[in-house]
C-alpha cells in the first residue's frame, strides 16, 4: 500500500512541476513575440478582452476541474488540463480504455490505464496537428471540402452514440433519470446548445450522483 501511495505521490509531484512549468512557458509566447517585434499589447484591448472572455471560461474551468479530475485519475488529469479537448477526446479515450481493461479508475491499474490512454491520445493529436500544419496547403481543399463538412459537424453525436450505448446499457438503472432530465432540458430550453453543454456536464454529474445515492440507500441497485 505504501508503494502504491508513493507512485501516486510521485505522479502528483511530477504533475505539479510539469503543469506549472508549461503554464509559465505558455505565457512566453506573447512575451517573446512582443520582444522580437518590439511591440507591447494594446492594454485597453487586453483588459477589455479578458473581462469579456475570462469570467465565463474561468468559472467553467473551475467546475470542469472538480468534475473531471475524479474521472480522469491523477496522471490523466495533469495531462488533460494541459492538452485540452477533454470531453471530446481525452475522457472518451480514458473511459474506453478503462472499459476495455475492466478496471476501476481509483485502482492503481485504472490510474495507469487512464494515463496511458490519455498520454497516447495527446501524443497522437499533437503529431496529427503537426502533419496538418506542415501539409496545410494540400490538405486545406480536402478537409475543407463541403462534402466532408457534415461528418465533422456530427463528431459529438457519433462519439456519444457508441460510448453512450455501452455505459447506459450497463448502468441503465442509474441512467434513466439523468438521460430523461437532460433530454427535457435540452429540448425545452433554447439556451442549451453546443456552447453550453460544458456547463451541463457538472449538472448531469451532480444529479446522477444524487439519484444514485438515493437508489443505493433504498437498495435499488443491489
Amino acid at each position: 500500500m505504501k508503494k502504491n501511495m508513493s507512485y501516486m505521490d510521485s505522479v502528483h509531484r511530477d504533475g505539479r512541476i510539469w503543469n506549472l512549468s508549461v503554464m509559465v512557458i505558455l505565457f512566453l509566447f506573447p512575451v517573446t513575440v512582443g520582444i522580437i517585434y518590439s511591440a507591447m499589447p494594446d492594454w485597453h484591448g487586453l483588459l477589455m478582452g479578458v473581462i469579456a472572455t475570462a469570467p465565463m471560461y474561468w468559472a467553467v474551468g473551475i467546475v470542469e476541474t472538480i468534475t473531471y479530475v475524479p474521472m480522469l485519475g491523477a496522471g490523466g488529469s495533469y495531462l488533460s488540463f494541459v492538452t485540452g479537448n477533454i470531453s471530446n477526446l481525452k475522457m472518451p479515450a480514458a473511459l474506453n480504455a478503462l472499459e476495455q481493461a475492466d478496471v476501476n479508475i481509483r485502482s492503481e491499474e485504472g490510474e495507469i490505464v487512464s494515463t496511458i490512454a490519455i498520454a497516447v491520445s495527446s501524443i497522437v493529436t499533437t503529431l496529427i496537428i503537426i502533419v496538418g500544419v506542415i501539409l496545410i496547403t494540400p490538405l486545406t481543399p480536402i478537409l475543407d471540402a463541403p462534402v466532408l463538412e457534415p461528418a465533422f459537424a456530427q463528431l459529438l453525436p457519433a462519439l456519444f452514440g457508441g460510448l453512450g450505448v455501452v455505459f447506459v446499457s450497463k448502468n441503465w438503472k442509474i441512467a434513466v433519470a439523468p438521460v430523461i432530465l437532460m433530454l427535457i432540458l435540452f429540448i425545452a430550453v433554447p439556451a442549451l446548445n453546443a456552447g453550453t453543454v460544458g456547463i451541463m456536464v457538472p449538472v448531469g454529474v451532480l444529479f446522477t450522483l444524487g439519484v444514485s445515492r438515493i437508489m443505493y440507500k433504498k437498495h435499488l441497485l443491489d
Partner: peptide, 22 residues
C-alpha cells in the same frame, strides 16, 4: 465507490445525449 464512478460517467454522457437533441 464503484456506483459513484459509474454515476459520474453516466452524468457526463447524459449531458451529451441531451445536447444531441438540442
Amino acid at each position: 465507490g464503484e456506483i459513484f464512478s459509474n454515476a459520474m460517467f453516466i452524468g457526463m454522457i447524459s449531458a451529451f445525449v441531451g445536447y444531441v437533441f438540442c
